[in-house]
Amino acid sequence: MDMAAWKIALSTLVLGAIVGYLGQRSRFCTISGVRDFFLVKDSYRLKGLIGIIIGGVLGFALVNRMGGKLANFTNPGGWEFMPMLRDGLNIAPAVLIPVSAVGAFLLAYFSVMAEGCPFRQHVMAGEGRSSGMLYIAGLVAGVVFYDFAIIPYLQTLTVTG
């Protein structure tokens, strides 16, 4: 790997470590934030989710102003920039939008059953909780399953041209 690749890899590691440290101290969780507010009107964790949006708006605006390179920042676009549209997947919006919406709904639904968002599960694994560690093991197995079973199916829905 060249220097630029190492820079990217190390920056993600450092960012993850800072956020993981803060996440452990604050019990930050996006899913539990909404859940706590809905069930017991406790807004402590919900403030974290709102904080990401505030921090993102401030951060992106400042980085853009201070000469940072942000792709498509002035024209972020709509569905054509959706995260699922990656190399080899060029799915028509009529399929992509409902599939993404259902995926997001079910991710949140099952995350309530797992008592935390994927980030919180990483933090719990770092704290020594066995459910977090097994969740991560399931996540790894799930990624391989997704690559072998789901991606080939999604590629049949790909539009060309």
Binding site: G103, A104, G142, V143
Partner: peptide, 11 residues
């Protein structure tokens, strides 16, 4: 973990 990553990857 297995189920959530698969739904998460759809989005």
């Amino acid at each position: 973990g297995f189920v959530i990553i698969n739904f998460g990857m759809l989005w």
